[in-house]
């Protein structure tokens, strides 16, 4: 085979792959390496995986203890399951809130759509951390909401809002809702209204027309939005840390504790690797469904 000059197409494809290789694959391999090494006192706080023995041979020491501990200690497993549950419920709430929003924007007069979309992404113009802090001010025992409730005489003593599961869900849904609305909007705006007229013409009442036509055709948007909310929410650290209760031991928090408080880098790395693998599965499933959906266009 003769060597040929790389085409511009190959170059265009190579750039993102290079980027992903440098900033995603390489760090992942480093983390994976740390995950199978032994914890040690020192800087860095783990023992090298490969070392020379006294006999001059290269010894490869793979420490799988962290992974067995992950399975055996229910603390980690619980954290994983809790994270998946919190992310799943949050994604569901986002879907239930975001679908009507996206539908309304897609059906709004064209001139008004851009304004409505701008309002959806407006919160991004403020720092994420700042917005979470603002929720603390709203939810705290002596915060805005409790003060109003007290002043109106609805409650006689402050209601516990902050550091509860409700605050945790509120924070996640609030932060991730735009990620649900935007892909849903992009999908719903493409839906030809004539299809709904056809359904109505053929005897479908509005609600049945929605179930039979709009909903199945918006499935790719639903999947994209759900993944965009679910995946980052599983590993979310800041919101549970700032708004959630002490028992909201989600995987992001556990990881943080292992890494910074316990300085157990190998354990933290093992957690990260498993988390990543757990997230790759739904993404692969999503890609599969997406491929099938686009095939039908």
């Amino acid at each position: 085979m003769r060597w040929r000059a790389p085409s511009s197409r190959a170059l265009v494809l190579a750039l993102p792959f290079l980027w992903l290789g440098l900033f995603f694959l390489a760090p992942f391999l480093i983390v994976a390496k740390i995950a199978v090494s032994e914890a040690a006192l020192g800087i860095p706080p783990y023992a090298p995986v490969a070392r020379w023995t006294d006999q001059g041979a290269l010894a490869l020491v793979l420490n799988l203890e962290n992974f067995t501990l992950l399975i055996e200690d229910s603390f980690y497993l619980d954290a994983y399951l809790r994270s998946v549950r919190v992310a799943g419920i949050s994604a569901l709430i986002c879907l239930l809130l975001g679908y009507p929003m996206a539908y309304a924007i897609a059906r709004a007069p064209e001139a008004r759509r851009n304004v409505l979309l701008l309002l959806v992404i407006l919160p991004f113009w403020t720092s994420f951390l700042l917005r979470i802090m603002a929720w603390i001010g709203l939810l705290a025992d002596n915060g805005v909401i409790n003060n109003i409730l007290l002043a109106l005489g609805i409650v006689s003593e402050p209601v516990r809002l902050l550091y509860t599961d409700a605050a945790l869900y509120l924070g996640i849904v609030y932060c991730y809702l735009p990620f649900m609305v935007l892909p849903l909007y992009a999908n719903l705006v493409k839906l030809d209204p004539v299809l709904l007229e056809a359904a109505s013409d053929l005897g479908a009442r509005p609600w049945r027309a929605f179930l039979a036509v709009t909903l199945p055709l918006s499935l790719p948007g639903i999947l994209a939005g759900t993944m965009l909310v679910f995946i980052p929410a599983v590993g979310e650290f800041v919101i549970p840390e700032l708004l959630g209760g002490p028992d909201a031991q989600l995987i992001g928090r556990v990881l943080w504790t292992e890494f910074f408080t316990n300085r157990d880098w190998p354990m933290a790395s093992a957690l990260a690797v498993v988390l990543l693998l757990l997230l790759v599965l739904p993404i692969a499933w999503f890609q599969h469904l997406q491929g099938r959906a686009t095939e039908g266009r």
Binding site: D192, V194, L195, D201, L202, G203, A212, L217
Partner: peptide, 19 residues
Amino acid sequence: PPYARPVNMMFQSYALFPH
């Protein structure tokens, strides 16, 4: 309403359900 009329329409774009 359209869904209750004994009338059916063939649309210019056909409006076939793609799924």
